[in-house]
Nucleic acid binder design. Structure first.
Lengths: 313, 313
DNA sequence: TTGTAGGCGTTATCAT
DNA sequence: ATGATAACGCCTACAA
């Protein structure tokens, strides 16, 4: 101990890792750390991992198909003990082909071409909850806004939306599906036409937080505070907007924590068949989702939407 | 090449790193990845590093003093080629004592006890810009909201605030310095009393985005859209609030990129004396900062604050 | 208890 | 050109 300080000895973790053939490092491949949802997930992963003596190497894959395999392979070549992946590529079978034996947990979307533990939220149920909430408040012309189509989560959410309409006996109108957009600006652009239909929408269900921001921006530009709205995913200022935005929220921290625990179990040698964990969503009632269909273009006065503490259903 | 695929050979980066005595990995120690500002910085770091063939190990130190040395030491024991650190501890001299030779770049705040390349933004100038903007719009009772006191950035921003008042011949009123808060909720709690002073405030300058969210929430609860506000740091829904929030913005992507470039130069063997890079801020004019002092409690009607495209000064 | 040899996978060096 | 060898720092195992 004396010598340690005197000579300034520091253990070389690289050498240890080579000798031991294992490394207390988890590889994390996530689409974008800038998205507040994934930022929370990654934060939870990093924190939980550190609590177990692991550190996390984080890389961003973007949404482009090409990057995932390169990035994940790079992490695996670093001899990480396990990987947490948000799948973006069309196919994750390279993991089984080239890196069999290294435990992988998928998050947010299920893997294609392989079997592994997966942490998902109940996208379909959450979207049903949110859409149904609008239905319960008298809406029958409800737009589904935000895409793109091919993403797993959006697909599931569209299913929940459709089921809510179906169960309410409302015919699905393809004109109300604005699922081509991905950037807030594109979402913004699509809202005016939905409001200008011969039978205009009275409510909007947005399929993720980017879509919510776009829709909010569009409504704001139009000066419309009378359009009901429920968004999938919470975001920081949701409670301070006019009206405050009712959202279906997932718990990103929970997701990250579960992913790490599952992964550590596998690393410890658990050999059960891979499972899927489906985490619940909550409806956070704030105001925008409780607006009734407006007659014409009446505007809800600002003071009528009083602030109340968030009410979680 | 044939054998590589046939045998499924993958290079072992750990062994390579041991043999070469270096590792194409950068260690990143940041306070919180959840903060949208740092999320962007980290994202820029990761992207830039990857573009140069480096990967990034990211760890969060929180704001607590204790964690920094443990976390940074852990990364350095991993033989990272260099470190990017957001200093949180009282003192970074352990870096020189125990890890001399490994290049370090500090970001957002300057190090204490050592000399190293540092990337800062012009906090004082930005706060001056924002406060002066309020002064130019006729305000003389301007609160400075958000803390805590001991943080470097907040200190500099308070200096800019003070200078703007001083140059305008406005006496600094300690009652208007609400720099004790750190969480949005605490900020929220302090706003009503500032508005209830015998000489109430007519404008708010918030010292970071958390403070902005708190102030916005408080104003929203009070139904006050007549209080002018400029915030330090941009945030996603700033343009969609009522009124849209004028902010002093820094460029987190730029910060991250510069930090990596400086670090890579050091890693490549640059031996000049450490320097400080001071990045500029922009005033993003949106509406809330251009409100004139209200007479009594008149409320600005919502439709009077029209949306306009962001105007950057 | 204390000491020493061997090998993890790679690369650099030296010999063929 | 191709091949053998040593060494990076650590941990384990076995010997003294």
């Amino acid at each position: 101990m004396d010598a340690i300080t005197r000579l300034g000895y520091r253990p070389n973790l690289v050498a240890r890792s080579l000798r031991l053939g294992r490394d207390n490092t988890l590889g994390i491949a996530v689409t974008s750390i800038t998205d507040p949802f994934f930022a929370e997930v990654v934060s939870a992963i990093e924190e939980t991992a550190r609590g177990h003596g692991f550190s996390a190497i984080i890389s961003c894959t973007g949404e482009s198909d090409g990057a995932e395999e390169t990035i994940v392979s790079g992490l695996l070549n670093r001899q990480v003990a396990g990987m947490i992946v948000v799948p973006t590529g069309a196919d994750q079978s390279y993991l089984a082909r080239k890196y069999a034996g290294v435990p992988v947990v998928c998050v947010d979307r299920p893997p294609v071409g392989i079997e592994c533990d997966t942490v998902l939220v109940d996208n379909e149920g959450g979207a049903f909850l949110g859409t149904n909430w609008l239905v319960l408040h008298g809406h029958r012309r409800i737009a589904f806004v935000g895409g793109p189509k091919d993403k797993f989560t959006i697909d599931r959410r569209r299913l929940g939306y459709s089921r809510a309409l179906r169960e309410a006996g409302i015919a699905l109108d393809p004109e109300l599906l604005a699922d081509v957009a991905i950037l807030p600006a594109e979402v913004s652009a699509v809202i005016p036409s939905l409001l200008a239909l011969s039978e205009p929408i009275t409510a909007i269900f947005t399929s993720n937080s980017k879509a919510s921001l776009g829709a909010i921006d569009a409504l704001h530009r139009l000066g419309r505070t009378d359009v009901a709205m429920v968004g999938f995913d919470d975001f920081p200022t949701a409670a301070s907007l006019v009206p405050p935005i009712t959202v279906v929220s997932q718990d990103p921290f929970h997701i990250g924590r579960e992913a790490v625990e599952l992964l550590l179990h596998r690393i410890a040698g658990e050999h059960e068949t891979p499972g899927r964990m489906l985490l619940p969503t909550n409806l956070v009632v704030r105001g925008s989702g409780e607006l009734r269909p407006s007659q014409g273009k009446a505007r809800v006065s600002q003071t009528s939407t009083k602030h109340k503490s968030d009410l979680v259903v």
